[in-house]
Computed example of a mutant assay.
Amino acid sequence: MNELSRLQSPAAVQAAFDEFSTLGRSAFLKRYGFGKSRYFLARNPRNGEQCDIKAVVAVAYGVQFPSDGPLSATALVENEATVAAKLQSLGFDVIRIGEDWSQDEVDATVADYFEMLRLEAEQRPYNKTEHNSALRARLNGRSKGSVELKHSNISAILAGLELPFIQGYKPRGNSQLLLRQAVQAYVTDNRSVMHKVVDALEEVKAPGEKTYTSTVLVDAPKKEALLQVSEATSRIRIPRKLNFAARDEANRQLGRSGEEWVIGYEHQRLQEAGYPDLIQQLEWISDTRGDGAGFDILSFDTPVDHRYIEVKTTNNGIAAPFIISHNELQFSKEMDQQFFLYRVFELRNAPKLFILRGDLSDHLYLKPLDFRASFRNYVG
């Protein structure tokens, strides 16, 4: 029988809550080998304290079944949502992390986030720690970590809307419904602010760094599936001129700057690989033949092995989405390991890149955006 289904005693759960309060969170989690909850907390009905659900349930199981003892973290395989549902079935209050923030707290956090985003886009200095401290003075006893999580939640919401977000706050999903509504309301009511952010990010400057050190090439982000929240909100429609991925794609000057930077990178890569003679054979295809070939630069791995390079450039950070054409996708499939996508990011500061090799559908989540409309269709 599944261990979680055997837990039926509210008194055992309360005993676990009481021990949590007596020991304190850190000591309780350390004693039983659990980490902090990521998505849900359970409220101790005696004192209102918010407790980590999997650790509480594991200890409660040991209280109800002393001969078995508490469940280990490896034995309690159910996810937090399943454990939360179990506690609710036993009559306990479960809250989604961050869900108890008030409207005033959420609005203040959203406003602070967008102020930092504007400063970052304009390349004006600011201090995240100072912003965090000043914001917490306006909130209801929130910790530094809880504010950082809220800011990461906002990044995830903006990424979902295909809008820029603060690079220092990696998107984290499972955000509060109230927060999603507040972010969407801010974007809708402050279009001028978002225009300034996107306009600033689109500005084309000569790269601040043209030396190709070992730190230029970084690992590509990994594909990750984010937890889909159950509460639905009406999706707002973002005007195309606010879609920075589309604007990056349309900004030919930005694209050429990125391709020119990659040409320099390839010169150094071939030099270091021991093929300096191949540098003269390198061809900037999009410049000499125009767009539409499915790649931008023809380079080499060896004297007999070509490297077909498609360049995607942004002033934004590593996680910024980008647009892939149907032609580019098909070419990546056809050329397989000879196809290389060079994603150049933070171009205007100290450019970096990651490389995706082969079929792009192996590396990326691809969502169709447009359709070709016609009155004729060829069948058979």
Rank of each mutant, 00 (worst) to 15 (best):
T74P: 00
R138E: 08
R6S: 07
N327Q: 13
R348E: 03
Q253D: 15
K210H: 13
G69S: 10
L347C: 04
H306I: 04
D291R: 07
L161D: 00
F345L: 07
Q281C: 07
R142T: 08
S9K: 08
R252C: 04
G62Q: 02
L369H: 09
F375N: 14
I263V: 12
A73G: 02
V83Y: 03
Q88A: 14
A159W: 03
A58V: 02
Q271Y: 13
D277P: 02
G290L: 11
V187L: 09
D52Y: 02
G290R: 12
V229T: 07
T22W: 10
S102R: 10
D189R: 15
A137G: 12
T314H: 03
S5R: 13
Y265I: 02
P276N: 09
D305F: 06
I53N: 01
G317V: 03
L227Q: 07
V56E: 01
F20R: 01
L76D: 03
L179K: 04
G62S: 05
T314P: 02
D189A: 15
S21C: 13
E202F: 04
Q268E: 12
K150P: 00
A12M: 07
K30H: 11
R138W: 04
F92W: 05
S361A: 15
S230I: 05
S286H: 08
H151R: 09
S89H: 08
